[in-house]
Amino acid sequence: MKLAILGTGGGARAQTAKLAELGHDVIVGTRDPEATLARAEPDIMGNPPYGQWLADYPGITLLSFADAAAAADDLVINGIDGHNAVAALTAVADQLAGKTLIDYAVPYVYQHETDHPWPTPWGVMPKLDPCDTDSLAEQIQRALPDTKVVKSFVTQEQTTVVSPRAIGDGDHTMFVAGDHADAKQQAIDLLTSYGWSDILDLGPLVCARGMEMYAHMHSAIGFGLGQPFGGHFGIKVVR
């Protein structure tokens, strides 16, 4: 299958590497391919320059967001940071029309001012916007009415999403939500190929609100486990 990953951060790299390992034809989208390849310093999360990383994956194609989305058969994964996702995806709405978009972005706002900050080992915890009465996934769906948006992957680090058996031999739960049954099935099929055996369909896309708000709990658990820079653990729904 020819799939597109939009984004070049650590999570997108984990998705890209796994999909290539599984034999998919992977196209990566970035805002400016030349600028992305020209960067010589690690990104803000400490990931090595993308060109350096890409050298180990000669079969991966790097294109603009629009060209990558257009090249995908029918499945695209959104790894664009939450603050910029709606604008970036709206700009390529035509290329995404008729396709499934799996969104794992968290709508974080960094460096915000608050009377009651949550200090963390890496600075003040970002706030979620939107929250409670809307979600990033719903905003994306409204901006892209001809695209089938599925929220998933967002309750784990992407390194865990693509390798669930690294935690508890895979005995933990992944979630999906969306308004299109066929699109959710595509996400479920992909997760199954990653090794997930416990996948819980939460229902319509409005349930993305719960998944996105879980990001703070994910961080809190990581702090409790002494894993402040990306918690590698699983959560299990026992029923």
Rank of each mutant, 00 (worst) to 15 (best):
Q227G: 12
L202T: 02
T100E: 01
T114N: 03
L62A: 14
D134Q: 11
L89R: 04
W122V: 15
E34Q: 14
A55R: 03
D32F: 12
T160C: 15
D25W: 12
I44D: 14
M1E: 11
E34R: 09
Y110V: 03
K236S: 02
D129V: 05
P58S: 11
T30C: 15
T133R: 12
D132Y: 15
V28G: 07
T16Y: 13
N47H: 14
G203F: 03
D146N: 12
L62F: 10
G203T: 09
L89F: 04
L63M: 12
A72V: 05
G170I: 12
G82K: 09
S64L: 06
G123A: 04
I27V: 15
A181E: 01
F223H: 14
A143L: 07
Q158E: 03
G224F: 06
R209W: 09
A183Q: 07
D32S: 15
Q186D: 12
P48M: 14
T90I: 00
T16H: 11
T90R: 02
A20T: 08
G79I: 06
A38D: 08
G226C: 10
D134K: 07
G210K: 01
H112S: 10
Y194G: 05
F65D: 08
A66V: 09
G10M: 08
R239D: 02
V106S: 09
A187C: 03
D56Q: 13
A137N: 04
D81H: 06
P228Y: 02
D171T: 09
G10Y: 07
I80K: 00
D115R: 11
D94K: 14
Y194N: 06
D103W: 09
H24N: 07
E138Q: 15
M174K: 07
N84V: 04
S64M: 08
K18S: 02
L144Q: 02
L101P: 09
D182Q: 13
N84I: 03
G234I: 06
G170K: 02
P107W: 04
K148P: 00
E41H: 10
M211W: 01
I80H: 00
D132W: 06
G59P: 04
M174R: 05
A181M: 00
V28L: 04
E21W: 06
E212C: 07
T192W: 13
I140Y: 00
Y50L: 10
N47G: 11
T36P: 11
I199G: 05
W53N: 01
V162W: 01
S163W: 02
A88L: 09
Y104G: 08
G170P: 14
C131D: 07
P130Q: 01
S163I: 01
L225T: 07
G170W: 01
V238W: 08
L22D: 01
T133K: 13
V149T: 11
A72G: 05
S193C: 08
A66N: 06
T155C: 10
H232I: 11
M213T: 05
T155W: 00
L190M: 15
G210I: 06
A177S: 11
V106L: 03
D146I: 02
G98Y: 02
V237L: 09
E41I: 13
V154Y: 00
L19K: 04
L6W: 03
Q186P: 04
F229M: 04
P48H: 06
G98F: 01
T160N: 02
V26A: 09
L6Y: 06
R39W: 10
P130W: 00
A93I: 02
H24L: 03
G222S: 03
H232K: 12
H112A: 14
A4D: 09
T147I: 11
G222K: 11
E21P: 13
